[in-house]
């Protein structure tokens, strides 16, 4: 089976040849296997969002290759192989919450009745039942972000690309959302690439944590999370969990120090 995501020697330079040239990513190599949950963690500006955009073929790499499901990334995008959650919720303010979630289904010409029931189902999953007919500006930042998650899940993609989806949530909601996401991942065998600033979240959800460092953005360490596949509230209290949290924290500290 080919890796779900294969990043081969990828570099990304923004504004090449100009005075504001930025080497955002340098020689990234990363293979993500089917069913893996890979978190990417690193200091602000190290190129996490850029890496996710490259996987989603929203920007092209300056050099190297990105394969998704064994296909070049542009083909995978055309085939709708992934669902993406952006760092900003990016809801359309002229659409209601439910209509926002239905957008990808509309683009695939899914019939109205099915669209509505699937949107309702996804909104229930992110604990937003009853908000179907609200407009995005009537929701808090965290609620908007959960609508964006529902929108990404509604297509039932095999690969989920998520850019700090829970960044705007309070600690308790975040833990509940972590549990939901974990359950979805565990039960549907999805592959996930997940960007976060939270060490606890990364360890709880992942099978592997990728630590990146800044200037230029590169991978400094990859940590296997050898916790049992099933995670729940008790997981957060095991010794191994604490050890792994500390391991990631150490790695992150070294990355920030530029070692």
């Amino acid at each position: 089976m080919p890796p779900t995501v294969s990043i081969q020697n990828v570099s990304k330079v923004f504004n090449p040849g100009e005075t504001n040239q930025v080497l955002a990513l340098k020689e990234i190599n990363l293979d993500i296997l089917p069913g893996e949950f890979v978190s990417i963690i690193g200091p602000s500006g190290c190129g996490k969002s850029t890496l996710l955009r490259l996987i989603g073929d929203l920007i092209p790499p300056s050099s190297g290759a990105v394969l998704v499901n064994g296909k070049p990334a542009p083909q995978a995008r055309l085939d709708q192989d992934y669902g993406m959650v952006f760092q900003a919720a990016t809801l359309y303010e002229w659409r209601t919450v439910s209509k926002n979630v239905q957008l990808p289904l509309e683009l695939q010409s899914v019939p109205k009745a099915e669209r509505e029931s699937r949107a309702r189902e996804m909104l229930a999953l992110v604990e937003l039942s009853g908000f179907e007919n609200h407009h995005p500006w009537q929701l808090s930042g965290g609620m908007q972000q959960r609508v964006a998650i529902a929108r990404a899940l509604v297509m039932r993609p095999q690969l989920l690309l998520m850019d700090e989806p829970f960044g705007a949530l309070d600690e308790m909601t975040r833990e509940r959302m972590n549990q939901e996401l974990h359950t979805i991942w565990e039960q549907t065998n999805k592959t996930a690439v997940f960007i976060t600033h939270s060490i606890a979240e990364a360890v709880f959800l992942s099978t592997r944590v990728v630590v990146m460092s800044v200037r230029p953005g590169r991978i400094t360490q990859v940590i296997d999370i050898d916790l049992p596949r099933h995670r729940d509230v008790d997981t957060r209290e095991t010794t191994r969990y604490f050890e792994l949290v500390n391991l990631v924290r150490e790695a992150l500290r070294r990355a920030e120090a530029g070692l």
């Binding site: 055309l78 990016t90 683009l107």
Partner: peptide, 19 residues
């Protein structure tokens, strides 16, 4: 970002225009 969202859905020019 709104445009990137449409791109991530591989939406057609027509859909991007009218939606």
């Amino acid at each position: 970002n709104a445009l990137e969202l449409m791109a991530s859905y591989a939406a057609s020019e027509f859909d991007t225009l009218f939606r």
